[in-house]
């Protein structure tokens, strides 16, 4: 390997390579974490545990009606809730470590990072 090989890089090549690398680093820091268990609780009891990577829609029945929790593209949110002030719905997509609590319907969605239990690609 010789550093002379790098003379094959023209000015624009440096720009493309560095911009590409910067874009990848930004994507990597913005990307949703690869593992993360989400725990949905109803009245304090665990209703469901799921992985953020699995796209699915969960309907959680509570005293006021049905709370809809949506998992999509590595993120999770409360898509619909019967509570009057809609606090947990307006919170939007959660980030890792966050929780949405729909108190009137007694539903909570917690995206806790419990770490790896296994990795298999």
């Amino acid at each position: 390997m010789s550093w002379r090989l790098l003379t094959g890089l023209r000015a624009g090549d440096w720009a493309v390579a560095l911009l590409g690398l910067a874009a990848i680093v930004i994507l990597a820091t913005q990307a949703p974490v690869l593992t993360g268990r989400v725990v949905i609780r109803q009245a304090g009891q665990v209703f469901m545990e799921g992985d953020v990577r699995l796209n699915q829609t969960i309907r959680v029945p509570g005293p006021l009606g049905v709370t809809v929790v949506e998992f999509r593209a590595g993120r999770v949110r409360v898509a619909a809730d019967p509570s009057p002030r809609q606090i947990c719905v307006r919170q939007g997509w959660l980030r890792a470590g966050e929780a949405a609590v729909c108190l009137p319907n007694r539903v909570s969605v917690e995206w806790g990072q419990l770490g790896y239990d296994s990795l298999g690609y």
Binding site: L5, L6, G8, L9, D13, A17, G20, L21, A23, I24, L27, A28, A31, P32, V33, L34, V52, R53, L54, N55, R72, A73, G74
Partner: peptide, 23 residues
Amino acid sequence: VSLMGLLPIFLGAAWLTGLANGL
């Protein structure tokens, strides 16, 4: 399954191989 979380890893690999092949 959402695979898009893997995008940075694969793009990083493409950056390395693209640079090497280009040189």
